[in-house]
Design a protein around this nucleic acid. Structure first.
Lengths: 258, 258
DNA sequence: CAAATTGGTTCAATATTTGAACCTCTATTT
DNA sequence: AAATAGAGGTTCAAATATTGAACCAATTTG
């Protein structure tokens, strides 16, 4: 692994649930030597990718990430464009709504809107989603280039629950259905008791750039509720695509004129 | 320079104005060899920090940055907390409002709200702000630890305009005033024809964690308008501090109970 | 269509990274 | 209050990854 890869992999150790870690802990989890780990952390700190708490000396993600993320978002306002759609879906359905962005053949969880009720599906921002066992993953795979699809179904597919579909052919069936219907469904494929629907957000070239999903407890998911959510999420995903596509186009026009 | 530093410095080449760059261009600007540059870019791409346009083959910032930024924001909702205050200030004053976050003794431009009028001050998200010649910089320096202040005034201070204050003693005077009054002012210290006021956003320990600024064309800035904006920006900065401090506190309480 | 420019690749020479051992400090434990 | 354990941090010879000149292929330009 390249040194850069090692450094970046340290950043991946932080999550919403564990936002701060000590040096020894980071070294243990990454598998790198303590000296190596520290040198990498110092490098990252110098560029504001990591901050060190002056009190506890623990490390956490730094403001430089926010800065670069904002530069990216300024040119490609994926999150900003999606937010109103997400909020509206969350309001309409009263369930957890979840936005992912595709990158390198993976889905990155970018935003989650939780309903205020007690019994709800909790999803953490910042996680990677498995492709074969989530509604988002299937919706995504329904609109990717052949090689991405093949490599996603090639490896051994982890069964997260007793209901996870791990047979590539069966997954292909789900994908076909999602393609025709415009949205995918997952009945407890990733977590027990959770039923999700998702739709792909398409880019200018017609391939998926992300997904939008609604996740609800099984007990609140009748067949008709699922269908309704599916249609809603598909419509919202289409709305995001259209607005994003239009906005990017307008931004480019504006730039060309300036 | 460490390899990690080199890799991260490549990310710093991207900006709102130049969001996409080719390999040769990146190599030229970074000063690294083309082979080295590409290897670094590939490493960064593997972790979604960089994306490559499939058409032009140009490189741009990747979705992994958004992902990590969201993890950070979930624990320390600096931007989210500040946004309502920023919007309200922008509405009240009709001028450009600007949020920075402190990191490593630098100020990173994190968010900007522009008024919709034609003659306005334009600020780009994602830039580093000089400390000696901006209202934000002075407001920040008024609330930092001694060593940070000293090193900020130590180096040669670049004169950006004919009115930039470059004499450390004179800057210290501005800092003292800002400390007493609660906000700083900058009369064309960074750009000709721009008058700015700024206030420090204080952390739990009483030191600045960022700044809030209002930047307006000189022609719309009477003495009384400047004072009014100063008071408004100081009040908003205090509001952010209090809410952030409270929210963090509540979040910690919530976590402890969970 | 030849010259120039761009993205990308190779491999011996070179510079950086590595990690066991060590130090220091703080907080328990005895 | 001395001893122990665990944390963060540091050092330098040995091990390894990085470097860059030269190269190729594919567009773009004059």
């Amino acid at each position: 692994m390249s040194t850069v890869g090692k450094a970046v992999s340290l950043l991946d150790l932080f999550s919403v649930d564990e936002p701060e870690l000590g040096l020894t802990e980071i070294a243990r989890r990454s598998g790198f030597d303590k000296a190596t780990t520290r040198r990498l952390l110092v490098s990252l700190t110098q560029h504001s990718f990591i901050e060190q708490d002056t009190g506890t000396r623990h490390y956490r993600l730094g403001a430089g990430l926010t800065r670069l993320a904002r530069i990216r978002e300024a040119r490609f306002p994926f999150l900003q464009t999606s937010l109103p759609f997400i909020r509206e879906l969350a309001r309409e359905t009263g369930e957890t709504v979840h936005l992912t962005e595709a990158s390198n053949g993976s889905l990155l969880s970018v935003h989650v809107e939780h309903p205020s009720r007690a019994n709800r599906v909790n999803v953490n921002v910042g996680e990677y989603l498995p492709l074969h066992s989530t509604a988002s993953g299937v919706a995504y795979l329904a609109h990717v280039r052949e090689p991405v699809l093949n490599s996603a179904l090639a490896g051994p597919l982890e069964p997260f629950t007793s209901r996870t579909i791990t047979d590539p052919a069966a997954i292909m069936d789900s994908i076909e259905i999602a393609r025709k219907r415009g949205y995918s469904m997952s009945d407890q494929g990733y977590e027990e008791g959770v039923f999700s629907v998702a739709a792909a957000i398409l880019g200018a070239d017609g391939y998926a750039i992300g997904t939008l999903a609604i996740a609800a407890p099984l007990v609140r998911t009748s067949r008709s509720a699922a269908t309704e959510r599916g249609k809603a999420v598909a419509a919202a995903a289409r709305g995001i695509s259209e607005q994003l596509f239009g906005e990017v186009f307008n931004a480019l026009k504006g730039r060309a004129l300036a």
